[in-house]
Design a protein around this nucleic acid. Structure first.
Length: 627
DNA sequence: CAATGAAGGACCC
DNA sequence: TACCAGGGTCCTTCAAGT
């Protein structure tokens, strides 16, 4: 029977995929998932989105199959030696267990929807969701009975529940309520308000549970909203526990090794999500607090990861359904998964998670993206991108950040998504062949986005200018100029330009080849020359990264792209016209969502990633080909 | 032979 | 009627350069 699982399994996984990411949320347990999934399937069948999901599902299937064939081989092997290694690892991990404190995760129930209900009580008894017909952000519990949930397109929700009321998002309002809640927490946090601390906590008779109840109660009195809480020994467990008695309830998992192991063993892997505190985000509905011997530290914001649809499928194929199964299958998992993923699973199995409140806040990237009804005209696309770039530039300015890397993201009407990124100094130094842009190739897009990352201090920007450019690029590499150089003139107040461009001294009026576009500029003086360089640097038409860098990986069916980059304030404006038919030949990644930023607050992330990646590679290959 | 950049995904809310 | 978001983080794989 194992071998005859073909189309049936296929549709099943597809149905699950289409059902969306949040099918296990509170309030959804009682719905007839089969039926709901079927309706979702019927409604979306044939759409571009659907077709794209089919592809992605197939990719996961393929990956699983290759894993399974490996699995078959390994099954017959003697894993004794491996088990010794794994069990040693388990013992070591167990010794890191920290049961010295309680950590509590407080989660607002259906936050946006609850706010709307509070303001319009008549909605309480009716199925209601917040969002638009395009996409819902959340649904109240009445609506969840019909299978309506967050991240579901509104029009599909309407099929599931025709009487559904959809209320538009009102983020300003939610932010305000977040502020209210936050102020409540501040009262409990000694760092914010030491005075009121005694008022609430020093009555040491109060149990942890009582304190949390009190906090939830106060939230309710203050905002009219309910919250749920999980109290446990670490962040991971606290997060999981907060879901158990949702809505408007709390759950305490005792700080006892046995209790924890019992609890986790029965837990379906999909329930695992890991709560890690990151930079402070006000407009979120989750709050974590830590109770430590009479003190409470409140931290807002989160960074949550977990085991999602894909990982669940992979694990299921490896016969791991509950966290307890991780132990049973540990030998296989050790052989098949990357060390990082495997280590994560071991910690899950042991119920070990981070207990730190490292509010290591530095944010790593800022992005802006917009979906729109399909645009095809170059001009429209350009304008849209310009808007996005302006917005991103504003955001950067607001955060007082400068970036080194810009990533553009494009989504075709087919939902195929491509991203292209460039770090500025490299971009300038490398001086990609400039591409004479080819025949008009209108491409349609449904989304464009820009992301800024690799933030740099202004010191770093000093050495990235033309000097460096000049010194490292042989003139022969420069090619023809952008036809459009003057169409998109440089923006006036361009800080990055100022920082990045050193003026070039030319002593005599002469012919001079522009290093960027290689045009020979006749008889110009310093000022004119510099002006020209400015324009060229601001608007460079690249031979597309797509052709030069990706052709080896992704076969292109037709001609490619004009690609322009324009400085716009802090941001770069990138314009591309890719061919519509990228065929991704990539294999999908392995088990992910396994990232609880462990201990060490911020030791070189890049290094960590790099080396683990290598470790991974070597580790896997040596283990997977054992003889 | 480490370090790095780029592209693509998975996951969360 | 309407036809699948936007903002982040981290992980993995590839490829190329010294």
């Amino acid at each position: 029977m194992e071998s005859s699982k073909t189309t049936e399994d296929h549709t099943r996984s597809l149905l699950t995929r289409l059902a969306g990411p949040s099918t296990n949320k509170a309030g959804l347990q009682s719905v007839d998932k089969e039926k709901v999934n079927k309706i979702i399937y019927e409604v979306s069948k044939g759409s571009a989105f659907f077709e794209n999901e089919v592809k992605r599902d197939a990719a996961v299937t393929e990956k699983i199959n290759s894993m399974l064939s490996n699995y078959e081989k390994i099954k017959t092997q003697d894993l004794t030696a491996d088990l010794v290694i794994v069990d040693t690892q388990l013992i070591e991990l167990d010794q890191t267990r920290d049961l010295s404190q309680h950590i509590c995760h407080i989660d607002m129930d259906a936050f946006y929807a609850s706010v709307e209900e509070r303001d319009r009580p008549e909605l309480k008894s009716k199925p209601m969701a917040v969002g638009s017909l395009g996409m819902l952000t959340t649904a109240n519990y009445e609506a969840r009975k019909y299978g309506v949930r967050s991240a579901m397109p509104g029009y599909i929700a309407m099929r599931l529940c025709p009487q559904l009321i959809i209320v538009p998002n009102d983020f300003a309002k939610y932010t305000e309520v977040s502020g209210q809640i936050r102020r409540i927490f501040e009262k409990y946090d000694p760092d914010f308000s030491p005075m009121s601390l005694d008022e609430y906590v020093s009555t040491s008779e109060l149990t942890v549970e009582a304190v949390i109840e009190q906090i939830r109660d106060e939230i309710f009195r203050e905002t009219g909203l309910t919250a749920s809480a999980g109290i446990a020994a670490n962040k991971m467990l606290a997060k999981i526990c907060s879901d158990i008695n949702k809505p408007n309830g709390q759950y305490l998992l005792p700080n006892d090794r046995y209790a924890i192991m019992e609890f986790i063993a029965k837990l379906p892997v999909r329930k695992v999500s890991v709560f890690a505190l990151k930079h402070e985000t006000v407009c979120k509905s989750s709050v974590a607090s830590r109770l430590l011997t009479g003190q409470i530290y409140i931290v807002l914001g989160y960074d949550i990861s977990g085991i999602g649809r894909v990982t669940e499928r992979i694990l299921e194929a490896l016969e791991v359904k509950t966290c307890g199964d991780i132990y049973t299958q540990r030998g296989i998992l050790y052989k098949l998964l990357s060390p990082i993923n495997f280590g994560f699973l071991l910690r899950v199995y042991l119920g070990i998670g981070s207990t730190k409140i490292e509010s290591d806040g530095a944010r790593k990237s800022i992005s802006v993206e917009r979906t729109f009804s399909t645009l095809s005209k170059e001009e429209d696309l350009y304008n849209k991108l310009k808007e996005i770039a302006m917005k991103l530039a504003d955001d950067l300015k607001e955060e007082n950040l400068k970036c080194k890397t810009i990533t553009i993201k494009l989504k075709m009407p087919s939902f195929q998504t491509v991203t292209r990124s460039k770090t500025i100094c490299r971009y300038i130094q490398t001086g990609h062949d400039i591409f004479k842009y080819d025949a008009e190739l209108p491409v349609s897009l449904r989304l464009m986005g820009l992301r800024a990352s690799s933030f740099i201090s202004s010191d770093d920007t000093q050495n990235m200018g033309l000097k460096r450019f000049f010194s490292s690029i042989p003139p022969s590499e420069m090619t023809s100029p952008s036809k459009k150089a003057k169409t998109y003139p440089a923006s006036q107040e361009n800080e990055l330009d100022r920082d990045g461009v050193d003026l070039i001294k030319i002593t005599t009026n002469d012919d001079y080849a522009c290093p960027v576009c290689t045009h020979v500029l006749k008889n110009i003086d310093n000022t004119q020359f510099n002006a020209h360089i400015d324009i060229c640097l601001n608007t460079v038409e690249l031979k597309t990264i797509l052709t030069t860098q990706r052709s080896a990986i992704m076969p292109f069916s037709s001609t490619v792209i004009g690609h322009e980059i324009q400085h716009l304030s802090h941001a770069y404006l990138i314009f591309l016209r890719p061919s519509t038919t990228f065929s991704s030949s990539r294999k999908s990644c392995s088990v992910s969502g396994t990232n609880e930023p462990q201990h060490s607050p911020s030791p070189k992330l890049t290094t960590a990633t790099g080396s683990s990646s290598l470790l991974n590679y070597f580790g896997n290959s040596s283990r997977q080909n054992p003889g």
